[in-house]
Design a protein around this nucleic acid. Sequence first.
DNA 1: AACTTTGTCAACCGCGAGTGT
DNA 2: GACACTCGCGGTTGACAAAGT
Length: 312
Amino acid sequence: MRKPEDKACNNNNSKVKLRKGLWSPEEDEKLMKYMLSNGQGCWTDIARNAGLQRCGKSCRLRWINYLRPDLKRGAFCPQEEELIIHLHSILSNRWSQIAARLPGRTDNEIKNFWNSTLKKRTKTATTNSTSSSLNNSDSTPEPTRDHVTGGGTMFPATLHENLDIDIMAATSSLCRDSSSSSSSSTSMPHPSMLTVARFDPFPHHQHNNPYDMSGAHFPFHGGIGEGLYGNYGILEHGELGLCIEDNMNIGNMRSYDSCFNNTDENQRDMFGLEDNDIHHWNGDNLRMGEWDFEGLMGNLSPFPNSLDFQLQ
DNA sequence: AACTTTGTCAACCGCGAGTGT
DNA sequence: GACACTCGCGGTTGACAAAGT
């Protein structure tokens, strides 16, 4: 059973009993009208001024998850599914951050979709591929939270946790900043603005695994609101790299062993990178803590809008 | 047809962070 | 610093519908 009303929804300066539960069409209409004519503000005031016997929190939720005009309706398309899986492998349950990269979708929607559909699907895929290729433990954990062994390489368990930084958010910001000053959103951006923050939790096998993003296109193009299916290039297995803006030095980051390796010479040339910009090391000793975040943050400073980095 | 199980989704809940007084 | 308030997030719940028995 649910507990008594949330204190935030039980405004003590109001004696009116606040409604809970499903929203009626009339309530929706009131809120919609108010929001369209007055815009967003203090939700408590909105609830009151719109004549709703709801707490502000409830109004906010209703607006964000249901009434907002820019919401996309209907089922998730395969590209969205793939993107959710991909983003979840990096961001874990940071639904709001995942949602920010899926225009028109809400965190709640994505969370529900993950919990009801994708979770099982990916788990099944993991179970199948794991049982067929590995003599592993009987647990079939989610790839975001576990070490995956194979071919003698152990990949760090949880990229996002070890990084403690929202690379994807930074990516969006940087791309947004760049695109805002670029003349065309469809042209190939300068390669050095390319940002990659992905990893393949199954670096040496399981190619039909949904997490296997090998060969996937970089999902960055213009940041929030412009879709995320830009085609900036293709990486090979197990790559992890980060290149930020023209005037930023990739030397702030250290790359996973195959990133811009010799076979990627063309790619490196395209990015205008020098050998000493890139630090290689053996994947065996990979430690995310070796990323130089101070330097990165320092380099980010010219971009005031890039502060949706989340250091935690 | 009646009942049970399972899946989906809207909404609630509690918490932490931020802000103003 | 303490307090009140708001906002946003992620986990969880419960209502409902569909599928299964």
